[in-house]
């Protein structure tokens, strides 16, 4: 949670400015139609920044109301991020019905396992409860995205540049959160505001990545979705492949038998 004071104030103002720039690009490119969850996420991040800053001015950044509202808004933002990540996964894979059916189940399973692991190994201190929950969710998001990319690579699924960059940004940001939370848990106070800096810079990098992608969105042609084969062509290819495979299989059978007899 970025605490806006001194240099952090500048960093906070700069990230907020970038968030607004990103929002402007999303509006200009009409990306709220195609990526509503991501649009909503960016909107919520801006709102969170404004709410946090207002609370900080009103109650002070060390007050309980500020802490409660900050972490409460963080929970909402993480949920929004989850929806945005799922939206990207669906957009990247849903066109392949068979693969999407399998991959979605595996991704949910992996996420649940990572979440369970994180909760199981975290320290049982109520003061660290929020921090641990946050870290678990962040690790879960990054594992989900990495698995998504691994599947996309294995099945040679083309990913839209915008979605690829959004996912990379989310993953890097979530990993930075995991590292930040872990550093904070171990050396509370020892590193001063290092915790805030790492976090802000990670988000700063992600924002630049997203802005770049949103800016190029209209310039670069979208990755064309593979057209589902027409039923006639589909059947024709299947029959053709079947007959060729059958031929190959016969040859292989012949080959294996002749090898067996010799060895």
């Amino acid at each position: 949670m970025a605490e806006p004071r001194h240099f952090l104030n500048v960093a906070w103002a700069l990230t907020t400015l970038l968030e607004v720039v990103l929002l402007a690009y999303l509006l200009r490119r009409k990306l709220y139609r195609t990526h509503p969850a991501f649009f909503l996420y960016v909107l919520m991040v801006i709102l969170q920044s404004l709410v946090q800053q207002s609370c900080s001015w009103y109650w002070g950044s060390d007050s309980l109301p500020y802490w409660t509202i900050s972490w409460g808004s963080q929970a909402v933002v993480i949920c929004a991020r989850w929806f945005a990540v799922v939206e990207i996964a669906r957009r990247a894979m849903a066109m392949y019905m068979g693969i999407w059916g399998m991959v979605s189940r595996i991704l949910i399973g992996v996420s649940a396992l990572v979440l369970a692991y994180s909760i199981a190994v975290s320290e049982r201190q109520w003061t660290l409860g929020v921090l641990n929950a946050d870290r678990s969710l962040e690790l879960c998001i990054s594992a989900f995205i990495v698995c998504l990319f691994l599947f996309a690579r294995y099945y040679r699924m083309p990913m839209n540049e915008l979605e690829r960059r959004i996912a990379v940004g989310f993953c890097l940001y979530s990993c930075a959160w995991v590292i930040n939370d872990s550093i904070y848990e171990s050396w509370r106070g020892s590193f001063g505001h290092l915790w805030d800096y790492i976090n802000i810079f990670a988000f700063f990098g992600s924002l630049l990545l997203w802005i770049g992608a949103a800016r190029k969105y209209s310039e670069l042609p979208n990755v064309t979705a593979p057209n589902p084969l027409p039923a006639e062509r589909y059947g024709e290819l299947s029959r053709e492949l079947n007959s060729r495979l059958h031929l190959l299989n016969n040859r292989l059978d012949h080959l294996l038998h002749s090898e067996d007899s010799r060895l």
């Binding site: 690790l139 990054s142 990495v146 990319f149 993953c171 995991v178 590292i179 872990s182 550093i183 848990e185």
Partner: peptide, 16 residues
């Protein structure tokens, strides 16, 4: 456990 979290995050960045 905390060290494992950091290692996991770095491994995930590498895999990414």
């Amino acid at each position: 456990a905390v060290l494992m979290f950091i290692v996991l995050a770095i491994v995930l960045i590498g895999l990414l």
